[in-house]
Design a protein around this nucleic acid. Sequence first.
DNA 1: ATGGCCCGTAGAACGGGA
Length: 261
Amino acid sequence: MPTQIATWNVNSLKVRLPQVLDWLARTGCDVLCLQETKLTDEKFPQQALADAGYAVSFSGQPTYNGVAILTRRDTVGEPIDVGIGNPHFDDPQKRLISASIGGIRVICAYFPNGQAIDSDKYQYKLQWLDALLTWLGPQLGAGREPLALLGDFNIAPEDRDVHDPAAWADQVLCSEPERARFRALQELGLTDAFRMFEQPDKSYSWWDYRQMAFRRNRGLRIDHILVSHDLKDRVTACSIDREPRKHEQPSDHAPVIVSLD
DNA sequence: ATGGCCCGTAGAACGGGA
């Protein structure tokens, strides 16, 4: 039976919970990584998700950030060895949660946005990325558990991932230092599952709420699923599900899903 | 024309997102 693993920046799980429940019911997804839950742990909707058949692992804070992994109990069982954060980077911002699920190390990540090239937040983003590389390197060595890194990377890896490359050139999300770090992740042995397959031109995962950007398909592909070498051999499909972006009160991001045999 | 929208938290013509 194939396994589906997905990532979705929901931009508030409080607002988007009904859409998440609908989406899980529609897709039967086995593992869903969420970003920007924007909920403290006390307010995490554990019961509603448990009632839907999902185990929940989460790490939140007030107002900003917040990540979670939902695990479908009847197909892949319980998550084990749940970890929060990166031991190489002391970070009050809740951006990383990881768990072993059905023999796969799943890392759910909400990469910093960076705001603007000349801001302190951009320097924080680069440091966060360097620490991620330091942490992941040893986890991708021979004999390690197959690994998937999923989330909102806040990086458009190439110009084809950008609706207007000239306008975005050297801007945050597209700058060369960020793209170099994305390539460094690939050099560690991670493969962009989406690019393993022929895809429609102008495939994006995020569209601004303003200016009817979704209708005009003015977007960026910044949500990604990267898989280790041994997992790559099991990948049969990868796609962006644009459906939820069409709903009333949508997240500005669409889910990305990978199928494994 | 450098803003437009959406969210949480306030109780703001706000900060942050991307």
